[in-house]
Design a protein around this nucleic acid. Sequence first.
DNA 1: GCAGAAATAGACCAATCGGTCTAGTCTTCC
DNA 2: GGAAGACTAGACCGATTGGTCTATTTCTGC
Lengths: 187, 187
Amino acid sequence: MQDDRSTREKLVSDAALLFRKNGYHATGLSEILSASGLPKGSLYHYFPDGKVGLAMAAADWTTTGLVRIIDDAFGPAPDYRAGATHYCYKLARLFDISAHIDACPISALLFDGPENMAFRTHAEALFQRLIDSIAAHARRFGMSDAQAQQAAETLLITVEGGWTLARARRKSDVMRSLPARLFPSHP
Amino acid sequence: MQDDRSTREKLVSDAALLFRKNGYHATGLSEILSASGLPKGSLYHYFPDGKVGLAMAAADWTTTGLVRIIDDAFGPAPDYRAGATHYCYKLARLFDISAHIDACPISALLFDGPENMAFRTHAEALFQRLIDSIAAHARRFGMSDAQAQQAAETLLITVEGGWTLARARRKSDVMRSLPARLFPSHP
DNA sequence: GCAGAAATAGACCAATCGGTCTAGTCTTCC
DNA sequence: GGAAGACTAGACCGATTGGTCTATTTCTGC
């Protein structure tokens, strides 16, 4: 336990990275275990539900990180547009340091088999958490509830689609082009 | 061979559906084989590269279908905006009849391990095929090359992100809300 | 009708999967 | 110091994976 992070936390963060890189089904327990240097006993001690429980925790952990990025982007911004722009640029940087291979953090979890309804409902809740976070900032900048909800959904949709295209092209340019698409300067 | 579709075609379309529903890694060869009622020998006769080759062909097949949907949507439309709106509505209907479980047809393929570079470059080409199809219609409606490319990318990004959110919510409403996001009526 | 290719059929394989279970170690509190 | 729980360690399991290989059947052209 000389690692500064607790055993459980290390397991979650290492698993989250692997799930993002390879997807849920393509990531074996052995891969997670060897990456974290922990035995299988520890995994099933902290996560009696096994791989499914670990994936849930990993998705939560990732979402919490995304909420922090949202807050960092919108917090110091002078208006909503600037905040959204900062958010896109921060994601572009995140995409670059992940070597252009990682999936959108949440959808990597969502793309599991449809039989696992717990996954689906959990993914829905996580997406809503992101939308709510963005919408709170939008309201802070004077938008009505309906406007804020609409704007937050649009931003999430755009970021999600942009990430997919960026991943296909293995280039973060797309992410940086999103603000211009979200806020077209009318002639 | 009493099936009207050829053996190879049946293999491809059945596999494409399963890949979309469960993802690449979660779909076993046995599942594809039992769904199509064919023996393993036939699969490896038509696709010596095995699962990878079959997935490539399935992605091609799906992309061809998407291009036809694009042409059907934009063909009879009076302008670009109407064509894009038709496209979103057609996708919403497609989403509904797939019981809200299928992934975006292409990204289901893209989300494979990063080690398989052939997958990544192929997915990139397929996305570009869709963008080019949309851009051709945009030019037909009077846009310049640069404008058309920009508009086509924006539509693809939005549709891709919208599909993801729709899938998380298991509701096609999001898809039908996309035109309003793409073409905001300025006050 | 016959030869040769195309296609079908499925037994079989090593490797890996997620998961269980028992033994042992470490920590903590009385 | 000794009992009790928390945690680590990894051997082991049945099931399933993608893939190979050999027969056998079906189709095709002469």
